[in-house]
Simulated scan of single mutants.
Amino acid sequence: MNSFLFKKSRKFVVALTTALLLSLTLTGCGGAKPASETTPAASAAPNSVIKIGIIAPLTGPAARTGQEFKDSINMAFGEINNKVGEHPIEFKWIDSESDAEKGARAYESAIVNDKITVGFMDWHSWVSVSCMEVAAKYKMPHFFSYGATDVVNQKYKSDPEKYAYWMGKAWPTPEKLSIGYVSAVEEAIKKGLWKPEN
């Protein structure tokens, strides 16, 4: 396991736990009804399970990335004993297969059939764009998508109320990245900002 990835995921855990608690306080453990059929949810019952639906490419061309997400998330949440406050955590791993349509169908199934409480992550821009529709349809809070495309921003700006459930875009649009990935890592090492173990 890449220690840099693990350290980054630990930061996400802190942010996610805060977001989850806020989500549970504001929306409760909402049901899986489309937005047009939802009613305000009651606050979460003490010790109720938080089911986190994590979208990742677990099979297909980016399966290695999906496995690294899975390993680092398991390790990071293990450090907080798989609990947020008094709420135990369960993971529902949602395989996007690196495909927008399959990812959206799997996400919807996790909401409707597996009754996830909150959505978390995903890797590909095209999966983010398709899953935004699912989150909007079911009013499912979704945090920390890695989809970088500006289409995510455009979609949100087109109807902020509808797409408000897609929160915390974790990666800037490609145009806003001033230097490439390799150059960024090399510069961080050169400036002493990051000292890789190997």
Rank of each mutant, 00 (worst) to 15 (best):
A135C: 13
M1D: 11
F91G: 11
K83P: 09
Q67A: 05
G168A: 07
L20C: 09
S158F: 13
I111S: 04
I189H: 05
K7L: 00
M167N: 12
G60Q: 11
K83C: 05
A136M: 03
A148Y: 10
K157C: 04
T17M: 10
G31Q: 11
G30S: 07
N74S: 11
K115E: 01
K51A: 02
T25S: 07
G103I: 01
C29W: 00
E37W: 00
A100L: 06
W194G: 02
E197T: 12
A19Y: 10
I54L: 01
I89F: 00
W194L: 10
P172I: 12
K70T: 08
D122C: 03
H142F: 11
T18K: 02
S109N: 14
K8R: 13
K115L: 01
P40M: 12
R64P: 00
M121P: 00
W194C: 00
N153W: 06
K51R: 15
A32E: 05
S48A: 14
K137G: 10
W166E: 06
H142R: 14
K92N: 08
T65A: 08
V112W: 04
D95T: 06
A170E: 02
N81P: 03
S183P: 03
F77H: 03
L21Y: 14
F4E: 11
F120P: 00
Y165D: 05
A104R: 13
K169F: 08
K70C: 05
P141N: 05
S43R: 14
L22H: 09
A100Q: 13
S3D: 15
N82V: 04
V129R: 03
K51F: 07
G119K: 08
I111H: 02
G31W: 10
A76F: 01
P40G: 08
A63G: 02
S130L: 15
I54Q: 13
P46D: 12
L20G: 06
C29Y: 03
F91W: 07
D159A: 09
P141A: 02
A136W: 02
T38G: 01
G28N: 08
P46G: 04
M132Y: 09
S183L: 11
A41M: 11
A100P: 04
A41D: 04
P160V: 13
S145F: 04
P34I: 09
